[in-house]
Design a protein around this nucleic acid. Structure first.
Lengths: 123, 123, 123, 123
DNA sequence: GTGGTCTAGACCACA
DNA sequence: GTGGTCTAGACCACG
């Protein structure tokens, strides 16, 4: 099963789905060209509303991680024009850098940690 | 002025305040022991409600970035026992590592970026 | 009716709500997995503001007595990893032990009293 | 030094002073007939406002733990007519019994804990 | 429907 | 002066 949803999390469910798809792609568990389950299927499996899954898929589409083909449904794809992190992502990363510093990590430790997390995603 | 709030942002205002305080501490613009503005003062300056600021301060307190002295109000402090990133922070960082990868950054580039953001906070 | 609030009490209303929920759980009047009334419902029934109830619920959540399921609202739960009394609770108990002694109770009487109060909560 | 005040505690300072006097009496560190420091002295030593100490002393007086003699100042005394715990104390103890139960303590464990805390105060 | 957030006031306890 | 609490509304995100 691809998804582990936490209904008690403050993170919206559609966001959790989106996040887990992105991670799966980054880690190579989901390959470009591969099909995602149909909305109804996934919704039933995960015990959530169709609308919730639909929202997640639309978000993924708008971010370029997904294309919907009329015949084959939702298909994974890596962003066509990778252009570095966008502003929102930079803000989040900067925030984490600050928190890491206050949490006692040195710059080297923080870099190493980031690298190892990137590596993990090598799958 | 310490705070720049974006009232259009989906990020709650109390969270924006919290974030900016944390960043300010990390960047050395706010020193441990320094006093934060009184709730009412900040609320008026920023044009938001007292309770919004109050909520931000309580969040900061619960995270250990702030203590409220019964005599002198809100005082900045670095977490007494820095213990690395917590689980939530790790999840956020891991997510960013994945997104960075899909955005076309190499591991080295990502590490360098993280390092530079950490460095920025050296203030 | 689950709640009896005393608006004259110096104890904040949100704290009273929190206390009564905890007691109800301890006494078995509220079972793990059971739903608590919706914030608005409870607020209206009790004649208090939504935010007051909301604050009580958030406090209960932070203490692990409550989880809010994104689909079905507030659900009671016993702390997953019961780990004895925390420091604050120990301080309060120690204070009471001292007061009991000064109130003329012998050690045996105090123990018996504590036991009987625990027993009451067997519900 | 008799007092250790925590200015960052949510417990009011006057209440902390009152609590520590009561504990000291219960533990025998303060004996009936003994004099407490003058308000001004204590206030200066502890770095708090005269009013704060005064409030604590008045509270202690109203509870019967203290009498003020025009010549000798504030004098410790055990309550003249020990009459068991009052209603407020019972409520607090009952609350703790419930919390102890939810924290995983058995009735026997709770009783033993209460007993040991009482014993500690034997000093 | 749910909880989360916010406003524009207010009162109180504390120091 | 400070923070803590509360009210009576409101809007939004989520499912």
């Amino acid at each position: 099963m691809l998804f582990e949803l936490d209904f008690q999390s403050p993170v919206p469910i559609y966001k959790q789905i989106r996040d887990q798809v992105v991670l799966a792609v980054a880690e190579g568990r989901l390959l470009p060209g591969e099909r995602l389950p149909a909305i109804r299927t996934l919704a039933e499996d995960a015990g959530v509303n169709n609308m919730t899954v639909s929202k997640a898929y639309q978000l993924l589409k708008s971010e370029g991680y997904l294309v919907t083909d009329r015949r084959s449904g939702a298909v994974v794809c890596r962003p066509s024009a990778p252009a570095g992190l966008d502003e929102d992502q930079m803000v989040r990363l900067r925030m984490l850098a600050g928190e890491a510093k206050l949490a006692g990590l040195s710059r080297a430790e923080f870099e190493a940690l980031c690298g190892s997390l990137y590596h993990e995603t090598e799958g």
